[in-house]
């Protein structure tokens, strides 16, 4: 319980920093920290495989890519903060937050289900992934291929 509160606090702190930091690199590092803390949250929910994948894919690949693009473009501009716009956006987000929180007032499940020790390990995920989700798995790999080709085509210099 205490662990959850510490992790939740850190997650919220870093994610707020993502939105409020005016420097892009600071935002990116805050997001990397958020993703890292969320990986630990996944561990508390018996999802060790996904926790590690979260670090590997999000923090290790996607965030590095974003940082790489930031350095490549090197915009070096600090964003202005129009007060009215920020106020409006924050209010809207708070309203959305209240609405979503109202939805979880009566969740469908209350108690934890009993799970085997191997829950969330590589075997159990692979079992599900390659039997029930074999077709989506294939489609996901095609999606990645399309994304690679699309990215190369978009970012390539026109000759």
């Amino acid at each position: 319980m205490i662990v959850f509160f510490i992790l939740a606090f850190l997650t919220l702190l870093f994610s707020l920093l993502v939105v409020t930091q005016r420097n892009v690199v600071h935002s990116a590092m805050a997001l990397a920290a958020t993703l890292f803390v969320m990986a630990v949250l996944f561990l508390t929910l018996d999802a060790p495989m996904l926790g590690v994948l979260q670090i590997l894919v999000y923090a290790g690949a996607i965030m590095i890519l974003i940082l790489f693009v930031i350095m490549l473009l090197n915009p070096l501009s600090i964003e202005a903060r129009p007060a009215a716009w920020w106020m409006l956006g924050s209010l809207g987000a708070a309203a959305l937050c209240l609405q979503l929180a109202a939805l979880v007032h009566r969740p469908a499940v209350s108690a934890e289900a009993a799970v085997p020790a191997s829950f969330g390990g590589p075997e159990s995920i692979a079992q599900s992934l390659f039997t029930d989700f074999a077709l989506p798995f294939g489609l996901a790999s095609v999606l990645l291929l399309v994304a690679i080709i699309g990215a190369v085509a978009l970012a390539q210099r026109q000759r």
């Binding site: 929910l45 018996d46 999802a47 495989m49 996904l50 994948l53 979260q54 894919v57 999000y58 690949a61 996607i62 499940v109 108690a111 934890e112 289900a113 009993a114 799970v115 829950f119 969330g120 159990s124 995920i125 079992q127 599900s128 992934l129 029930d132 989700f133 989506p136 996901a140 999606l143 990645l144 994304a147």
Partner: peptide
């Protein structure tokens, strides 16, 4: 975790793929 079914985690796997 609370429903004791691993499908949710598999979906997250796909979300990560799409996010990448």
């Amino acid at each position: 975790r609370f429903m004791g079914s691993v499908e949710g985690q598999v979906i997250v796997f796909f979300v990560m793929t799409v996010a990448a």
